[in-house]
């Protein structure tokens, strides 16, 4: 059984005539890294909001491990583009927010915190205020805050889009490193085709209007360095094919 099952989901915002998403069907397994790409405003974030439980499908259903999703909970973590870190808490307290809310205070959590701080290069910033950190460091805190909870599904809503190239590349490595240790199901939204090719085992393309999944591509170039591939005809063809699928939304 798939970890996440989306069946015939349509979604329409209250007061809107047209649906934002139509006929979404998707199965995702644990220990998979999935990237969602598509044009702006096509409904990628809406899809994550439905999976998180912030919104509910107009028709169809979304199930996690066979159970219908009806509200947000720790089993589906979310990293937002603006991170939504709590500025009144220190780095460590931000990361420990989830375990504290779940009343997990055992030594294992402190071990996880120490490991995550080391893995994300935040050990020296443990007691720093959030507003003292750069954008890249804040994004590391946002990732660590989710990974300490070990959610079976982790969603990233264009989390790295505001970062410069070098910092983004660091974040890719950190994400892959954390994912390999937790083996959860990651669903990341991006606009960047190269980011999708590097990070996505599966690339889910959303297009058309209303938004629907036009293709789910197994990515043979997952974790491969683009600079080594740029001359390879098969890579170029695959990249062009994805770009073609993203295209421009029709009938808008």
């Amino acid at each position: 059984m798939s970890l996440l099952t989306i069946e015939n989901v349509d979604f329409k915002y209250a007061g809107s005539c047209d649906p934002s998403l139509k006929n979404i069907n998707l199965n995702l397994e644990s220990n998979s890294l999935n990237v969602v790409i598509g044009p702006s405003g096509i409904g990628k974030t809406t899809l994550l909001n439905l999976i998180a439980g912030y919104d509910h499908p107009s028709t169809g259903q979304i199930k996690m491990a066979g159970k219908a999703i009806d509200q947000p909970d720790w089993q589906r973590g979310m990293v937002f583009q603006d991170m939504a870190l709590f500025p009144w808490l220190t780095v460590a307290d931000n990361i420990l927010f989830g375990p504290k809310m779940r009343h997990l205070n055992d030594p294992e959590i402190q071990d996880r915190l120490a490991r995550l701080l080391a893995q994300t290069g935040l050990t020296d910033y443990r007691d720093a205020a959030i507003y003292e950190l750069s954008g890249g460091l804040k994004q590391r805190v946002a990732l660590a805050r989710e990974f300490i909870n070990r959610p079976p599904i982790l969603m990233l809503d264009e989390s790295f889009s505001a970062l410069d190239n070098a910092t983004r590349s660091d974040m890719h490595d950190i994400l892959l490193n954390l994912w390999e240790t937790t083996q959860n199901c990651v669903i990341a939204i991006t606009h960047d085709i190269d980011e999708a090719l590097f990070l996505g085992q599966n690339i889910i393309v959303i297009n058309q209007h209303p938004g629907t999944i036009v293709s789910v591509e197994a990515n043979p170039y997952f974790k491969k360095d683009i600079s080594d591939l740029s001359g390879e005809p098969a890579y170029g063809a695959f990249r062009r094919r994805l770009l073609g699928l993203i295209g421009k939304p029709k009938n808008r």
Partner: peptide, 21 residues
């Protein structure tokens, strides 16, 4: 910021905890 509340709920906080924390 609506994402504070959404983020907290996705981290495991219930309505009472979200209000106080």
């Amino acid at each position: 910021n609506r994402e504070y509340i959404r983020g907290a709920s996705s981290l495991g906080a219930d309505q009472r905890q979200i209000f106080f924390h």
